[in-house]
Amino acid sequence: MQAHLGDFLAIAFYLVVGVVFAVIPILLSHLIVPRSTGRHRDQTYESGMETIGSAWIQFTAAYYIYALIFLAFDVDVLYLFPVTLAYGQYAIRDFVEVVLFVGILSLAIVYAWRKGVFEWKTKE
């Protein structure tokens, strides 16, 4: 019973430390950041340049599909690093698996390309 209590205390400690590390920067930024007032407060700011048109524009669905494809490939590439470090006595088999994985990912890119996801159509 004491061993389980120690495990729960360790988990509670990490939970408290995680919450503290998340809350402290938010509180510090709330205390330190200067407050702005005036007529320019609600204007859109983009790299110090004056905005052209409304900030409320609608993006096409292709923009979101492009973003999801990027996110999926970004995460998938992260899985390649541990696989390359875990090569063992079956290096040939592991290499073939990685090539198949990258090949399937490449097919997804080709499919998106054929569907026109990477072509940006602008409105006049």
Rank of each mutant, 00 (worst) to 15 (best):
H30R: 14
V77Q: 04
F81P: 00
F8V: 10
Y79H: 11
D7A: 15
I109R: 03
G103D: 02
L78H: 02
A22R: 02
H30Y: 11
P82F: 00
T60D: 14
A10R: 13
L85F: 02
V102F: 11
L5G: 07
S106V: 06
D42K: 10
A72N: 04
L9P: 02
E50K: 15
V99S: 05
Q2N: 14
L15P: 00
I69F: 04
W120D: 10
L78Q: 07
A91N: 07
T84G: 11
Q58D: 05
I26S: 15
F101N: 01
G116Q: 00
L71A: 02
T122M: 05
V99K: 01
L107N: 03
S29D: 09
Y79W: 08
F13H: 03
A91F: 14
K123M: 03
V83M: 01
A55L: 11
V102E: 08
Y90Q: 04
S47H: 08
T60L: 03
L68W: 03
G48L: 04
I26H: 12
I57W: 04
F73R: 03
Y90R: 03
Y63E: 05
T84A: 08
K115T: 08
F21Y: 10
E46K: 05
K121T: 06
V99N: 02
H30S: 13
V20A: 12
V83K: 00
A10T: 08
E124Q: 12
T84Y: 06
V33M: 14
L78V: 07
V117D: 04
L15A: 10
R41G: 04
Y66N: 13
